[in-house]
């Protein structure tokens, strides 16, 4: 069973919010004793998703949680926006696909960096992406 040990949230509405968002994620990752490689992967994933939110939905909400399951602890991040939504999730998850002018690495690349990745999107209503990185994952 997943237990939520702490919960924090912030809004990302400008590009200047991306660095503070990364710093908040780093703080909790350090607090639970996550190693440097997993920390870097998690923060990079957070950076990608925060940027995506800005680019496609003009920003949104980030929830940062410390969770535990048995002996393992981890960081769960939820990125929720009220943007246009993703019409074809399978396509969006393909390497190299992008509707924006990016490299199209964002979503599939981010998924590779974390242990759990969940994407829910409704066209016209918004997108919510939840990622989880275990301390020793």
């Amino acid at each position: 069973m997943l237990t939520i040990l702490s919960k924090d949230s912030m809004t990302v509405t400008r590009e200047q919010d991306v660095v503070p968002c990364r710093n908040r994620v780093k703080e909790v990752a350090v607090k639970i004793g996550m190693g440097i490689v997993n920390q870097t992967k998690l923060i990079t994933a957070a950076s990608e998703l925060a940027r995506n939110m800005l680019r496609y939905a003009n920003g949104g909400q980030v929830v940062i949680e410390v969770v535990s399951k048995g002996r393992e602890s981890g960081v769960r991040l939820t990125f929720a926006d009220k943007g246009p939504g993703i019409a074809d999730i399978n396509l969006a998850m393909q390497d190299g696909y992008s509707t924006g002018k990016s490299l199209g690495l964002g979503l599939p690349g981010t998924k590779r960096l974390v242990n759990e990745f969940d994407l829910k999107s409704i066209v016209g209503q918004g997108t919510t992406i939840t990622i989880l990185k275990w301390k020793n994952g």
Binding site: V37, T44, L103, L105, G109, R112, L113
Partner: peptide
């Protein structure tokens, strides 16, 4: 490590 896993 992160860059390569990201695909960059």
């Amino acid at each position: 490590i992160t860059l390569i896993e990201l695909g960059l």
